[in-house]
Design a protein around this nucleic acid. Structure first.
Lengths: 123, 123
DNA sequence: ATATCACTTAAGCTATTGCTTATCTATTTG
DNA sequence: CAAATAGATAAGCAATAGCTTAAGTGATAT
């Protein structure tokens, strides 16, 4: 039997926003925005087990928001700004689309007002 | 008995990112970025029941990303750009923090290179 | 060599999420 | 008024998310 969730592959945007939805993961991104960190450094501020932190990290890496490299026994993590841009740009596009729409509406109403008196007898 | 999840109140940023994490809700935001829509207009593109759409809508309104007004029997929804900015600005702040950090590092390495020959005997 | 450190993997458990159907309440419209 | 329309509320259910503990693995220090 083929399950529904096996069919629909998630887009990069899906996984990025899903990764950012969790407060712990956003705190990890915030920490990494100030510079690289090892897994245990990343884990230290949180009141949760290391495996829990690793699961968050796995999701962040899966989304491309974070990349890491293991040297010896320590894995160093850093943030990938281009994956952040992806989400940022999506929001920006929707917000500016709305604002442009408001501007056009404003212009139209302005035009109506200005043409009001010299158009009153025009028809 | 007091449950843990009854204590921790979610921040505006939490609910905003959580709202944006779902593909259906992002599609609704995308639709609304092109102009206001009624609940059934919003629901039409999706292969799910109206109550399901209403639950998504409730979450979007709870996050402040969408506002709505009911006139007669139709509720008209529109997007609230300032709530979008909240999430957008959070991402932007982290991304630019990282990029500034990289720039400073680049400047430092550049400086090391330029001072290399006239500093070789300097100490 | 062996103990410690830094992670990693696996399994399991609970709360939440994203749906569903069924039922209900207001507003139009005929 | 009766019937259709637009939305709202409630209850329930399967899948997922976010943890936990226990038990690895491989690198480094004693």
């Amino acid at each position: 039997m083929i399950l529904k969730h096996m069919l629909n592959q998630l887009s990069p945007l899906d996984v990025a926003f899903q990764a950012l939805a969790d407060p712990t993961r956003r705190a990890m991104v915030e920490r990494l925005s100030r510079g690289p960190a090892s897994v245990s450094e990343l884990a230290r501020p949180f009141a949760m087990s290391l495996p829990a932190v690793m699961q968050h990290l796995a999701l962040l890496e899966g989304s491309g928001l974070v990349v890491s490299e293991k040297i010896g026994r320590v894995r160093t993590c850093r943030i990938e700004p281009r994956a952040l841009s992806l989400a940022e740009d999506w929001i920006n596009a929707r917000r500016t689309a709305w604002e442009r729409r408001l501007d056009r509406l404003g212009d139209y109403l302005e035009e109506l007002k200005n043409n009001g008196d010299d158009n009153a007898s025009g028809t």
